[in-house]
């Protein structure tokens, strides 16, 4: 249950995932006085001003220092505080991968690391500010839970689920201003349990993050041509929901994994790793950002160039359905 109105969700949708995360942390902080937030110079960027103004004693800015952001929050977590570390996904986890490995992984400390602006939304800023590899880095760390919510309400739900989960979590956030509401109604968000967004027999599109909207769009296009498409929101990349994958392997003829992430090491890889050990599974097409640095360009340009649009995903599905 939650008390987020549709009006609030619409506002978060309009303003993008930064507002969703900033406001969610504020709401969580209001409910739970044991919640602490630290950031690396992203207070306005991650819309944390509301939290800072309301709870200045529970807010820390470590400066532009992502390695220390993780260690500082890890030290607080070691002493029993519930700490959220918020940074740009371009730098969390890549810049502080080792700090995450030792403190969140090896010591299993209860740090919740949040990477905003994952993927290629910073298109015009160039590749230094893209996070095409963050899932790959985070999910190779033992003990780490990796979440990628898809819309305003699922961001809220993911943060609350992370807060209630004992252990380290990395949450990657995508979704530009205007990212659509995919969950207008309350729903259950359980870490490690994917959501079957839509049932279907022929193709299964398994998506993670806000690109779910394109996956749903592709499903609609395919359905219009008489192809039955199952859509799965794999909001938890680790631990992977293998039970739902078992059903997909048994019931669908083609799998598309869809992610705003490198084709190497992300959701597609996670699904393929599991699939590799099972006989007679359907073919899988990994639809991601490929394995290349990108030309500069708008977010729409980036998604178009990588084929992460409803039309392109539907085309890939059609071309591969036998």
């Amino acid at each position: 249950m939650h008390d987020i109105s549709l009006e609030t969700l619409s506002n978060w949708s309009k303003l993008g995932h930064r507002t969703a995360i900033g406001e969610t942390l504020f709401l969580l902080g209001k409910e739970n006085s044991k919640v602490y937030v630290a950031t690396a110079d992203l207070t306005p960027t991650a819309r944390l001003t509301h939290f800072l103004d309301a709870f200045p004693d529970r807010f820390f800015d470590v400066g532009i220092a992502e390695q220390n952001l993780i260690d500082f929050t890890a030290g607080m977590a070691k002493e029993g505080l519930l700490t959220f570390a918020v940074g740009l996904a371009a730098f969390i986890p890549m810049r502080c991968a080792e700090q995450m490995r030792i403190n969140m992984g090896y010591m299993n400390l209860n740090v919740k690391a949040i990477g905003i602006e994952a993927g290629v939304r910073f298109g015009p800023l160039g590749n230094t500010h893209f996070a095409m590899d963050d899932i790959a880095v985070a999910r190779t760390i033992p003990n780490m839970t990796v979440l990628a919510p898809s819309d305003p309400l699922s961001i809220y739900k993911a943060v609350y689920a992370a807060a209630n989960h004992s252990g380290p979590v990395y949450i990657r956030l995508t979704g530009a201003p205007g990212f659509p509401i995919l969950y207008p109604d309350d729903f259950e968000f359980v870490i490690g349990r994917a959501i079957e967004y839509k049932k279907g027999r022929d193709i299964a599109i398994i998506s993670t993050g806000s690109v779910l909207a394109a996956a749903i769009g592709a499903a609609d296009l395919l359905e219009a041509q008489g192809i039955s498409v199952r859509v799965i929101d794999m909001h938890t990349i680790k631990p992977l929901d293998t039970a739902i994958l078992d059903r997909v392997f048994a019931e669908n003829r083609l799998i598309l994994t869809v992610e705003e992430h490198s084709n190497i090491g992300g959701l597609g890889s996670a699904v393929a790793e599991y699939k590799a050990g099972i006989d007679q599974t359907p073919r899988q097409i990994i639809c991601g950002l490929g394995d290349s640095f990108k030309k500069v360009g708008s977010y729409d340009f980036q998604m178009q160039a990588s084929g992460l649009t409803a039309v392109e995903l539907a085309n890939v599905a059609m071309a591969n359905l036998r």
């Binding site: 820390f60 890890a74 030290g75 070691k78 403190n103």
Partner: peptide
Amino acid sequence: ASGSLGNGFAVACGMAMAGKV
């Protein structure tokens, strides 16, 4: 857990912060 140099010290700083908080 320490030995990755710099890491233990930075965690100790966080622990001291928690003590203050």
